[in-house]
Nucleic acid binder design. Structure first.
Lengths: 351, 351
DNA sequence: TTGAAAGCGATACCAG
DNA sequence: CTGGTATCGCTTTCAA
């Protein structure tokens, strides 16, 4: 058994408070006494104040929780999520704060428990599917949090982009190039839908908030070009991965009237789509493909996409948590996006 | 102020233990009573047992610490480190354990404090530069840990590869192709050395353990081919990044007798080297380049390298921590490596 | 089943 | 500068 602060106090012959001060408030006792305490502590093998006990007493932990909707191990697979984490980590480093990554089980009840049991001072919630349930649990604990994806409530801290406008911008790029017959590609478009084309009556039905906003943005542009929602093909992928994107595109009905462009809700999906559409080369007419995020792999692949900075998002989120601006108005940060046109998009080929 | 368990107990008119049981041991009280307790708790806005207090009392936290040598935010930049984390996360998910990522400041004293203050049940230490200092601190706390890089002490839990043999295998591939005049490329080859060629009298002087072992493996192969250490050029990079690798290679003495091959200690460095050596194309003779790790970017770049699985490493490390095998002999896991030959290496061009 | 009592290990106020 | 005292919020025997 490791010795406790109490044991050290007894060994040195001083009170517990004095030993505590020797560690936490050097200015509260004479240097000699402090040294004597530290020395005997070392000798006895006392590892210093127990972090858990200290947290309990002090009322704060020194760690912020990071919550990902999907399985935690998946998050590391998503390049954009990793950049977000990088940003969070940078801010945390500056504040000497640790990051607690909490794996959320699939079922809401389990997720709830996980959030309740996390020993943290606040949360960064990254794009949670069941975001509201999770946020409610956090609110229940009375802890501060920052969201990134869903539209926030008044007063909630939030950092994000104008998803819909950004999505509209790529789509307008395509309508400008003459594209009219297109397929939209997103993940979790409808609950439990099989990979492939889908009939979506109303964009509002899409459960995943980011997918919903981006699809809506795409639709805005096409509506402006005279194409209504039912005329758009919607492809769904089971998750946000390259292979899922590839699989979804393979399910495009063969033969008649293939789309001239695929608009994906993420670069990862778009890269999967590109693989399929450029790979076999079955169709001689190249199909335009666009993505979203501008991850590192987008540039070498020549992918036209919308750029947003994952690092900035993470950094801002953590900063909002760690030293919130006093005025509530600046607690919602809207980050910029840019349309990046590369070679994966071009004019509609002449038939 | 949030209500406490005590308040709930008083409100319901039962003892604190009973309320505690309602949460933690449902079988210890009648379902009706339990429900009554849970209901009033909800009504009062009691968020459930405080995680910190619970940890203190129970003596365990439900989180494992992950320690990276370099700045935490850099770790996310290193593809291999991210794969390692993915593996750790997978294992953690299975055990419903959280991951505490602890940023370590540069100075040893700060790092020590960070490790002392982390509320965790154990540590996964990924390739720490000042590994011994950190491990000593962990030992001081009496917490279990798993290392990945340095050669472990008897009885320490460890997971890794045979760095030296693996490095030797790529180098032998090159000597087999006839390469004799080569440059080795690693990061942190000597403390505070400027980017570029370096005089290293003895491999044992290299401070970074992984770099040291890999360089030694390279040297083994060349020794077998009759080339002794002083005849090898050693390039050092300030850190393990693409740009650092590129910069180091640019410092190769121009003109006479350029190397016919560059052996890098990591894919990241190798990819940087490739950029420079293939990029401008100043030298008409292609220089062979090899890496180490086989990260995702290696294949598309045609990089010859040594494959090891970051996920396996992470998974094994976490597993060793979370449910250690009873017999000490199986507490050190040696993972396999494979030489993957691609197009970046070839025979020595005829002069 | 339920509850009383004894900590878990440390900190902070406040009087000396 | 030092030390007594009262918590922090919960869990866990153990006896009723």
């Amino acid at each position: 058994m490791k010795p406790t602060l109490r044991a050290v106090a007894e060994a040195v012959g001083v009170s517990r408070s004095t030993v505590s001060n020797a560690y936490g408030r050097p200015d509260q006792l004479s240097p000699q006494l402090r040294q004597r305490i530290l020395d005997t502590a070392r000798q006895m093998g006392y590892p210093g104040p127990d972090p858990t006990a200290r947290s309990l007493r002090r009322g704060f932990v020194g760690a912020i929780g990071v919550l990902f909707t999907s399985r935690l191990s998946y998050a590391f697979t998503d390049p954009f999520a990793v950049r977000f984490l990088t940003g969070v980590a940078e801010a945390a480093e500056r504040h000497e704060s640790s990051l607690l990554l909490v794996p959320l089980p699939g079922e809401p009840a389990g997720a709830r428990k996980a959030v309740e049991n996390a020993a943290v001072d606040g949360f960064c919630v990254y794009c949670a599917g069941d975001e509201e349930g999770i946020l409610d649990t956090i609110r229940g604990r009375g802890l501060p949090f920052v969201t990134t994806s869903a539209r926030p409530r008044e007063g909630d801290r939030w950092v994000g982009i104008d998803e819909r406008a950004a999505a509209r911008s790529v789509a307008e790029h395509l309508t400008g190039l003459g594209h009219r017959r297109v397929a939209l590609l997103g993940h979790d478009v409808l609950p439990d839908a099989p990979t492939g084309p889908l009939r979506v009556t109303d964009v509002a039905d899409v459960p995943h908030p980011t997918t919903r906003d981006r699809l809506a943005g795409f639709a805005d542009a096409f509506a402006a070009a005279g194409i209504r929602w039912p005329e758009l093909t919607v492809l769904t992928a089971p998750d946000n991965t390259r292979v899922a994107g590839a699989a979804a595109v393979r399910k495009l009905p063969a033969g008649v009237e293939p789309p001239t462009a695929v608009l994906a809700c993420s670069d990862v999906l778009a890269l999967g789509a590109l693989e399929v559409l450029r790979g076999a080369g079955q169709d001689p007419r190249p199909v335009s493909v666009t993505g979203f995020d501008d991850i590192a792999e987008a540039a070498p692949a020549g992918l036209t996409t919308v750029r947003q900075s994952g690092e900035d998002k993470g950094r801002s989120a953590a900063a909002l948590l760690l030293d919130p601006p006093p005025d509530a108005t600046t607690r919602q940060i809207l980050l910029p996006t840019t349309l990046v046109v590369r070679t994966s998009s071009g004019p509609v080929p002449r038939s």
